[in-house]
């Protein structure tokens, strides 16, 4: 039964024979195929390699902003230290300017005083940019979920790519988040970043 259905479908999908083109179409079916082929060729010959190269370039040089929002920054210090050494993955803090940065790691709790600053800093960064929400506080408020001065989740202020649970997350978890983010960048389309 299934084989018969498949055959009938294939018969339906077969391109119309020459001379039997519909009256409304001014172009022949050959041109459509040609355009489709050309698009495929351009995709494979130009867009894919360029996307791959651009993503590869972004992948291993993620420069986070030096913005410490709360106590998770201690674990960030440990990640920058020699035992865990995030520089192996190309993560090195850019101390110079926000224009060099493409990653925001939100270190924990974001208070109502810090939230406008975080948005301000995020807006100043150039376009391909990613956000890692580190710690339970930046995901949902964490221990301070019922505090009067704490945002219940940083995704109310800026879009988040990777969430790292933990209070504070161990440095290994943070490194895992970097690898996840790199996977995301590797599979992303350069036309639609962020």
């Amino acid at each position: 039964m299934v084989a018969q259905e498949l055959e009938s479908q294939q018969q339906q999908q077969q391109p119309p024979k020459k001379g039997s083109a519909s009256l409304h179409s001014h172009e022949g079916p050959g041109l459509n195929i040609l355009v489709g082929k050309a698009r495929e060729v351009i995709q494979q010959a130009i867009v894919d390699p360029v996307t791959y190269l651009a993503n590869w370039g972004r992948l291993y040089s993620l420069w986070p902003v030096h913005l410490e929002t709360a106590c998770c920054s201690i674990e960030w210090g440990a990640v920058s230290g020699p035992r865990f050494d995030a520089e192996r993955y190309g993560i090195l803090e850019a101390f110079g300017s926000l224009r060099q940065c493409d990653l925001v790691v939100v270190h924990g709790t974001v208070t109502r005083k810090m939230a406008p600053r975080l948005r301000f800093i995020y807006d100043q960064m150039p376009e391909p940019k990613w956000v890692i929400a580190m710690g339970a506080c930046s995901i949902s408020g964490g221990v301070y979920f019922d505090s009067y001065n704490v945002l219940p989740g940083v995704d109310q202020v800026i879009p988040v790519d990777v969430y790292v649970p933990g209070c504070p997350p161990r440095p290994e978890e943070l490194i895992d988040a970097f690898i996840l983010l790199q996977d995301k960048i590797r599979n992303s389309n350069i036309k639609k970043t962020s």
């Binding site: 709790t109 005083k113 301070y144 009067y148 704490v150």
Partner: peptide, 14 residues
């Protein structure tokens, strides 16, 4: 100061 004021003193009350 006050960028990390999270109201810990108040929270101990409940």
């Amino acid at each position: 100061p006050g960028y990390v004021h999270r109201g810990g003193e108040k929270q101990t009350e409940y």
